[in-house]
Computed example of a mutant assay.
Amino acid sequence: MTKVVALMSMSLDGFVADPDDGVAEVFDWYFSSGDVEVPTGGADPMTFRVSAPSAGHLRALTAELGAMLTGRRTFEVAHGWGGRHGWGPAFVLTHRVPDGWLRPDSTVHFVTDGLESAVRQAVAAAAGKSVGVHGADTIQQCLNAGLIDEIHVDIAAVLLGSGVRLFDRLAGAPVWLGDPAVTAGVGVTHLRYPVRKA
């Protein structure tokens, strides 16, 4: 059965971006926490340089993903991943398709008819694998709708003090989680929680 999995890096004090939408501090561990290379796919491939535990975590995570779901803000910050997300087809929840983004070779799809439709389309595209959800607002919407099965949070060893919070507007709080799986990396701790269904 396909799982819908929230995926984010955040600071220890709960921020996924600084007040100017900068994400360098919470994503720095991808590029400077070790000497194990983990290449990514997509239109603009990158190579992560992480510790051995983080490399194992990333390889296992990406192997289980079949599609991604994200919001317009994350799409804009990531410059649309050049039209091809490295972790599978990406479904962008938005009110309006951005100009110039209906491209025949792109694996980025825009969903304008709501969250449930976006999740259904991503689940269908995942073909039995997991759907990764990223972007604070999209994760919050999915949690509020009871659509998240697991939360994967990479806690970067940094305190931002302010910015964009990951769990800021939870309508149904408290959200009860199961026991975590914990992987200690260098400069980051990887946490994986099942979400308890009501």
Rank of each mutant, 00 (worst) to 15 (best):
residue 30 Y to G: 00
residue 31 F to N: 09
residue 31 F to K: 02
residue 32 S to L: 02
residue 32 S to G: 10
residue 33 S to M: 04
residue 33 S to W: 02
residue 34 G to S: 02
residue 34 G to R: 06
residue 36 V to Y: 01
residue 36 V to M: 01
residue 36 V to D: 01
residue 36 V to S: 00
residue 36 V to F: 01
residue 37 E to A: 13
residue 38 V to K: 09
residue 38 V to F: 05
residue 38 V to D: 06
residue 38 V to E: 06
residue 38 V to Y: 06
residue 39 P to A: 13
residue 39 P to I: 07
residue 39 P to N: 10
residue 40 T to F: 05
residue 40 T to V: 03
residue 41 G to M: 01
residue 43 A to V: 00
residue 43 A to Q: 05
residue 45 P to T: 00
residue 45 P to F: 03
residue 46 M to R: 10
residue 46 M to W: 11
residue 47 T to F: 06
residue 47 T to S: 11
residue 48 F to G: 01
residue 48 F to W: 09
residue 49 R to I: 07
residue 49 R to V: 08
residue 51 S to F: 04
residue 51 S to T: 02
residue 52 A to W: 06
residue 52 A to F: 04
residue 54 S to T: 09
residue 55 A to M: 09
residue 55 A to C: 10
residue 56 G to L: 15
residue 57 H to D: 13
residue 58 L to E: 14
residue 59 R to V: 14
residue 59 R to N: 15
residue 60 A to D: 12
residue 60 A to G: 07
residue 60 A to E: 12
residue 61 L to R: 12
residue 61 L to D: 03
residue 61 L to G: 11
residue 63 A to L: 11
residue 63 A to Q: 13
residue 63 A to C: 11
residue 65 L to F: 03
residue 66 G to E: 15
residue 66 G to T: 14
residue 66 G to I: 13
residue 67 A to N: 07
residue 67 A to F: 05
residue 67 A to S: 06
residue 67 A to Y: 00
residue 68 M to A: 13
residue 69 L to D: 05
